[in-house]
């Protein structure tokens, strides 16, 4: 099973990185969304896979002793999903504003913070 998951995670990363490397903001945005899933799956599989049994303590029992899915990576990923969504939304709005203001979706032409012909800073005291 791990081999299949490794293959799947590999494909997720490949697609995410490929999209991030293209210089158009929409594609970068899609890449960021996929990268979040790729990382979550990596952590999920890294915590070992158990089919079907969620980590919930049955009624009457005081502790979870029967084999069940690993709860720790799930807790990590749960918050990660929500946070990656907020960042995805932030990036989305940022790209939208950048596109509206700069009239380009090409990151090569977005040079507001680091202009091409930036002068040398003052050399005096």
């Amino acid at each position: 099973m791990e081999a299949w998951f490794a293959l799947l995670v590999g494909i997720f990363f490949t697609v995410a990185v490929y999209l991030l490397l293209s210089k158009f903001i929409i594609r970068v945005l899609l890449g960021v969304a996929i990268l979040g899933n790729a990382v979550n799956l990596l952590i999920f599989a890294g915590g070992r896979l158990t089919r079907d049994v969620p980590p919930i303590i049955p009624d009457g029992a005081e502790a979870l002793v029967a084999p069940a899915a690993n709860a720790l990576p799930q807790a990590l990923i749960l918050t990660a999903i929500v946070i990656s969504f907020s960042f995805f939304a932030f990036l989305l709005v940022l790209s939208w504003r950048a596109y509206k203001d700069l009239a380009t979706d090409n990151t090569d032409e977005m040079r507001v913070a680091e202009p091409v012909d930036e002068p040398v800073p003052p050399l005096g005291y």
Binding site: A6, V15, L42, G46
Partner: peptide
């Protein structure tokens, strides 16, 4: 570059799952 990254992460996951799992925290 993307294929290299994907391959790297896939191999990484395989290597990780090949190590005996430390269940202390769980």
């Amino acid at each position: 570059i993307a294929l290299a990254c994907g391959l790297g992460f896939g191999l990484f996951l395989l290597r990780v799952t090949a190590v005996p799992f430390d269940r202390t925290l769980t």
